[in-house]
Design a protein around this nucleic acid. Structure first.
Lengths: 328, 328
DNA sequence: TTCCAAATTGTGAACGTTAACATTGGTTCT
DNA sequence: AGAACCAATGTTAACGTTCACAATTTGGAA
């Protein structure tokens, strides 16, 4: 910067002013500085800037498992939103969310690293619990966390999605809908159970016991066993598309045809869902929108502005061919 | 830091020395400083440190499409390796790799942001081409780039994987193997074609024309059409698992059974592959290993050390139920 | 004791930027 | 004409580290 100033015959401060589009610079001077910048191929040093301003224009994202479709898409959504807002993104993925300290440590590490704020993709209960221990003045927002979080939350309305899926099946004439849920410590799994149960009760339908999977296709396959024992089974709302895939496979092996014998609804709308056999009816989450809203929330918290404690994105039921009318 | 020094009754430099485990500090002094650090809950400012050392202990990753399984896993692999090496990771995902400037701009932006080095997940030809224009002294390594790159490359041996898949099918008695490839501008797609073709030629089998998909299940489904026209078709090596899924669906619709009528091999081993109908034989890539090797390569380039221009990770054929002996 | 080397600690100046205030010169107003 | 302002620019001091030395203390050997 000193070099640029010297070449342009001005002080470093004037260079700084040109860089910041400060209006109090004569047009001719500005041109001279700009020319010097180009000639020397000068790039501002963001570290020095961050050091003096206390702002790094970087946000941190701590994510549990970036190989799952949901977290990965969420991360991607945040990244795009951040880029558009002129922010860089630093990620920290946890190998396990076992102890609550893991989450807190990751946040602290990101903060030490100089990020302006942190978004925590905390689909697990334990992760949400950890957030209870961050002091309210550190700029942290959570994604996919439940109601009772102490930090601002951006989330897709899981309950509404589950309810829509359940109502869809009921409206096709099914007497009731079984539910193959995700692991108990996943917040989303609980929300989906709640939405499913509420919809069932509202329709006066019996509420079957909840089956627990672990989101993998394998668990969907294995839980198919328990489901098959039951012979008045005609409709299943599955907690995510992968498990639905596993279940689909198990049902086929058992000679049950979808949707003729059994109707299935998944959750997530992974890109492959439209190519399952049969194409899967599922609930789509808009991760781009979620990322945008999350970032907006985070930045307003960084700026210390007024902000809502919770933003909610609506999911969308995508009807394909895995659901059909109940057999009489 | 000044506060810590004051509280411990030493100079700031001594605090710095304690922080760096410098041996020339008396044990008792070290304890006093450590106590002060704890008491004040002091955290070193990484910006200030980076400013003076010129090292930020951060690497950048530019990635094309983090929603595809390959790039996402690669990113995750790098992140883990970086974490273990004490490095933070800053990501920059491109919405499109259309123009070559997009890649260069992303690299420059990361560099401006202060990263020590950049790993480019550049599966597209255009991305690789862009790398030709980065000067050899900027610490950049590419992943999944081809042979003719001018920067160091870490990659999975696509050719070996494709050859293994093809040989597996030939060994089951199939007269030849068709190939459903990825888009022409994807480096990996070309490498897989090359491996497939080489294996075919080595076995003296005829080489059918290459079919081009775009990695999505949809394209696999649609290209099934062209494949079905051909009636001496018994084996297909598909460029990735998603397309295999789509093809699987198309074959089922056409009444062709897998593996009885047609054998299929995919590529990637996505978590769902084991739960396709039937479970998919595929080629697994070890992304953790790739991430580790890539990081090692990048860091040695950052340090200006001696390093190999190219590291290669071996893939692994995973045999499941989508492949069987050719019908006589 | 006396002195030298090693071990320990301290000092001042960087790193590259922005913030706050000071200075200059030219207008405008009275 | 003089004061008072405004626009344009410059000056100095931070920000929180590390680096290169300088200064002090310590422990033995002479």
């Amino acid at each position: 910067m000193a070099d640029v100033a010297r070449l342009a015959g001005v002080s470093h401060q004037t260079v700084s002013r040109v860089l910041h589009d400060n209006p109090n610079v004569r047009g001719e001077t500005r041109e001279r500085v700009l020319a010097a910048i180009r000639q020397l191929n000068y790039r501002p040093n963001s570290m020095a800037r961050a050091l003096v301003t206390g702002r790094s224009k970087t946000i941190g994202v701590v994510s549990s498992d970036t190989t799952f479709y949901g977290p990965a898409s969420t991360l991607f959504g945040i990244e795009r939103a951040a880029y558009d807002a002129g922010y860089a993104v630093s990620v920290s993925s946890l190998r396990s969310v076992s102890s609550r300290n893991v989450v807190l440590d990751a946040i602290q590490q990101l903060l030490d690293q100089g990020v302006d704020g942190v978004a925590v993709i905390a689909p697990l209960r334990s992760g949400v619990d950890a957030l209870r221990h961050v002091s309210p003045d550190v700029p942290v927002v959570a994604l996919e966390a439940g109601q009772n979080a102490t930090v601002p939350v951006a989330t897709v309305d899981q309950r509404a999605g589950a309810a829509a899926a359940t109502r869809h099946l009921l409206s096709l004439g099914h007497k009731t809908v079984w539910h193959l849920a995700g692991p108990a410590d996943w917040q989303e799994a609980e929300e989906r159970i709640l939405g499913w149960k509420t919809a069932l009760e509202a329709a006066g339908a019996p509420v079957p016991p909840v089956l627990r999977g672990d989101w993998t296709a394998r668990s969907g396959y294995e839980l198919g066993e328990a489901l098959l024992d039951n012979d008045n089974l005609t409709a299943v709302f599955v907690g995510n598309d992968q498990m639905a895939l596993g279940l689909l496979r198990r049902l086929r092996e058992a000679g049950r045809e979808v949707p003729r014998d059994i109707s299935l609804v998944g959750f997530d709308d992974i890109p492959e869902a439209a190519y399952f056999t049969p194409p899967l009816t599922t609930v789509r989450q808009d991760f781009s929108e979620l990322g945008r809203r999350c970032l907006k929330l985070l930045l307003s918290k960084v700026e210390g502005e007024e902000h809502p404690g919770r933003v909610v994105v609506a999911p969308e039921l995508v009807v394909r061919e895995s659901t059909g009318a109940a057999r009489c």
